[in-house]
Design a protein around this nucleic acid. Sequence first.
DNA 1: GTAAAAATTTAAAACGTTTTCATTCCTCGA
DNA 2: TCGAGGAATGAAAACGTTTTAAATTTTTAC
Lengths: 350, 350
Amino acid sequence: MTEPSRPRRGENLDITHKRGKPTLRTIATIAGLAVTTVSRALSDAPQISLETRQRVHRIAREIGYLPDRAAQRLKTGRTNVIAILLDSHEEVVGFSTSIMYGIAKALKETSYHLVVAPNFLSTTDVEAAEYIIRNHLADGLIFTRTEPLDARVRLLLETGFPFICHGRTEFSTPHPYVDYDNFSFAYEATRRLIAKERRKVAVILPPKRLTFCQHILHGFMTAVREAGIAYEIPETVDLDTPADVLRDFICSRATAPDAPDGFICPGEVSALAVISGMSDAGRTLAVDYDIVAKETSRLLTQLQPKVDTIHEDLTAAGEDLGRMLLQRINNVNLDDLHLLLTPQINFPIG
Amino acid sequence: MTEPSRPRRGENLDITHKRGKPTLRTIATIAGLAVTTVSRALSDAPQISLETRQRVHRIAREIGYLPDRAAQRLKTGRTNVIAILLDSHEEVVGFSTSIMYGIAKALKETSYHLVVAPNFLSTTDVEAAEYIIRNHLADGLIFTRTEPLDARVRLLLETGFPFICHGRTEFSTPHPYVDYDNFSFAYEATRRLIAKERRKVAVILPPKRLTFCQHILHGFMTAVREAGIAYEIPETVDLDTPADVLRDFICSRATAPDAPDGFICPGEVSALAVISGMSDAGRTLAVDYDIVAKETSRLLTQLQPKVDTIHEDLTAAGEDLGRMLLQRINNVNLDDLHLLLTPQINFPIG
DNA sequence: GTAAAAATTTAAAACGTTTTCATTCCTCGA
DNA sequence: TCGAGGAATGAAAACGTTTTAAATTTTTAC
């Protein structure tokens, strides 16, 4: 089985160079061409004759040639890798997995691979990006949960390293991003609660430092002001608050006379926590209060009584992120530098 | 800014070779040594004098030298990468993310990186593994959801490629794995339902082809037989069944006179589906029936009324997977080739 | 004081590509 | 008939490291 394939029918060329994988030299020997020519033929360079090109391609296929990525990388300086900064906050509900899945989808037919760079490698998240750049670990970078003046964006803009982020910033320099229309999410969610005749709505906001917190707040406030309804914005908890803490907070708040009877939850975990907390306080969903939640999975749809949800398709986002980053890396002019994905509303709007 | 840094104070050595990143040659020039010596000094080879070694290390640090991974890889044949086959079935509840997070943790202080290889790259999952090996994309491979005679394991054993899997197989050849004690999970879960005086228990099994399906079945049957209680094993649905389908199935089943009043759910989604389905049929959790579920997140713990859960720590599993694979790659003798992780039971056992 | 042995250091080749520059072989126009 | 110009191919250098084998220096043994 590991026996070296014996030359057949008088064949005696040194085809299997060092009994290892076939290289350009192997093909060159077989075809009676120079390595240079083979290299050119395989990369479909224009000056190679059609006949040679086809012959080389055929031989390569027959002997199962695969280019050595390390050699290519050493020579060209391109890694054929894109990296994603994995945020530890997203661990819970498969946020990152969905995005990665989408990215991988976009990379499918290309020569690119996806590597995962957890940001706990360093104290700050900028350092993780720096690490990638300095070690030349990738040709492009993807990251999530942007801040208005995101240090990672600043660094990457400065160094000119190709990147794209999931979420917007407030930098004037244009850079590519994919984002979800969180304004619309919050606006429509709030309007839904109002339509259900709730008299006081509350929103669980993401951590204040994140850009999309502002968008949600804006959407929420717009709907609230339009309707002139009472509202509440809890200050001591947010989307990253551990579920049990959030639950206790909601429970204690629920007993007050001016407690909200409508909640916007921008995530599955917070929605469950709110439901539990209210339940602890003896409040019943759909009777005493309502929730509109954002879901990135299909988890909440299973709940009973049914929670109104607005879906965020993270796999689609990942696919766009990957596609756009590749274009950026290869200097293809992006048709659109920015992409704003539309919320998919799972309840009747009127 | 991109102006070449002018030599200062009479310095005139060609330190910045081609105005680029420092290489071994840069250090060699500064130290007045041969490249060979520098290479050896940095890899702490024994024959280099202590003084030289320290000096080289100091210079490397000062000028911010980082080895070129492509060159190292080309020369040594080692990629410094380990790959994980991402399974599309695990998309939902962040199964993979947790494992990846753990792996990344194990890789933290090493020179290794984690790349994600989605298995939809190919028609079969063996092809994804083959792809990795043939393209020499990694030094080691991790994958999940093993089958008793797993084709991936067979391939990797044949080729001698380093790997470790999450889940057992039935191959006689010893190979490393990390697994969760699904027998105990199912056994304890079933006993819990029995302790709660349920008269007929049902289990939602994983797809039959997966090894851990057998373990769960075994644990379930053992407890059932010990107690001599009635049981049921739905044949038309499993853990991978879409939540809404499972929900409908449970609902229709619930109306029959011999319907089960206790459920083992080896996952969050199935637990929620069962709860919804029973609810559709007018059955109330903790009153008409009980559930014991496996959770890999902290999602179910939030539910009301409280579901009994047994936790599986996937991040810990990932950490072990990474650690053990590294040992394997570097031919360190594994203290234990096999690791069986203990279920963490979140209810009183008696 | 010298030869052998040990301790350091070095030169050069190699890994498999891509790329620059040169070469060969035509074809064509004068 | 000859040289110009183009098309196709090739030789060789380079990317930055590791490794083999050799050279140099230092130490040890007599």
